[in-house]
């Protein structure tokens, strides 16, 4: 059973790996005699114009900016929400859940208008603004659940010792919230790394494409003659950072999802 599940999850990925390591001729017909394995696909992708790692760094840059900005905005918001008693707290939670469920693609047109009128299109850092907004609902929900789990007496003790809000956050609350912060950051980063509709419409300059768009472009160059070897190499390269992230942080991701589920 376990093997079956693994095969189901990893099979398509392993096939990509295999494809990426084969000579183009070997993809079409079994090659007799000569060695079908090659790294040429990787060389091709990495020496393209712009080289493939450019897309990786683009996506990484947007992801990091989004993650930082999201946490920066979500932490105070979650704190305030958690510490506010009142009728509209429930309303705010429902609104956040609704926003977290909102299909992104329905927003792109209006956002594109804004971006064009403010001259933000083709700017990677500007891209992190809508990404931050898209990630905020989930981030606020997760962090609020995290704040709710901290014993209230800890913050009381810090207040009695004269720590202001900023000091309490820095010295007491955030260090204790580190696991929640980590899992929130990872989920936000993943969402940003994978976003498609907005990046597709905001970014047109070739050297500024994010990874999903770049890969879709390789695929979209022609329906019939997709350079599958090169493409597979690109997917493998684009998946590696995520593979590492998921392997290293699976506990944080799972606990983040768990908390979101329980408190959401």
């Amino acid at each position: 059973m376990r093997l079956l599940v693994l095969l189901w999850s990893l099979g398509p990925l392993l096939w990509q790996l295999r494809t990426s390591l084969l000579r183009p001729e070997a993809l079409v017909a079994p090659m007799a005699g000569s060695n079908p394995w090659t790294l040429a696909n990787y060389q091709l992708v990495l020496s393209g114009d712009p080289p493939f790692w450019r897309y990786l760094t683009n996506s990484g840059l947007v992801g990091l900016a989004t993650t930082l900005l999201t946490l920066l905005l979500a932490v105070p918001c979650a704190y305030a929400l958690q510490h506010h008693r009142g009728a509209w707290r429930w309303g705010a939670s429902v609104a956040l859940v609704a926003a977290a469920m909102f299909p992104t693609v329905l927003l792109f047109l209006a956002l594109l208008e804004i971006a064009r009128s403010l001259g933000l299109a083709n700017s990677l850092l500007a891209l992190s603004l809508p990404y931050t907004a898209l990630s905020l609902p989930l981030a606020v929900l997760l962090l609020r659940a995290g704040f709710a789990d901290l014993p209230g007496e800890l913050e009381d003790a810090a207040r009695l010792e004269g720590l202001g809000l900023g000091q309490r956050l820095r010295h007491v609350l955030l260090p204790l919230l580190a696991p929640t912060l980590a899992s929130t950051a990872i989920l936000v980063f993943l969402a940003s790394w994978n976003e498609y509709a907005i990046a597709l419409t905001w970014i047109s300059r070739n050297d500024l494409l994010t990874l999903p768009i770049a890969i879709a472009r390789i695929g979209g160059s022609s329906v019939f003659t997709i350079p599958y070897g090169a493409f597979a190499a690109a997917t493998v390269l684009g998946s590696l950072p995520l593979l590492l992230l998921v392997l290293l942080a699976q506990r944080a991701i799972v606990s983040g999802l768990t908390q979101g589920a329980i408190k959401g």
């Binding site: 990893l10 096939w15 994978n194 992230l245």
Partner: peptide, 29 residues
């Protein structure tokens, strides 16, 4: 580890795997 590996498809960009599927379904290769 099993959990992480199971989670992997969810973590990858949709477009990447959509193209992956296109290759898997490619006619005739």
């Amino acid at each position: 580890t099993l959990r992480a590996l199971t989670l992997l498809p969810w973590a990858l960009p949709t477009t990447v795997m959509a193209l992956g599927w296109r290759w898997i379904l490619n006619d005739p290769h």
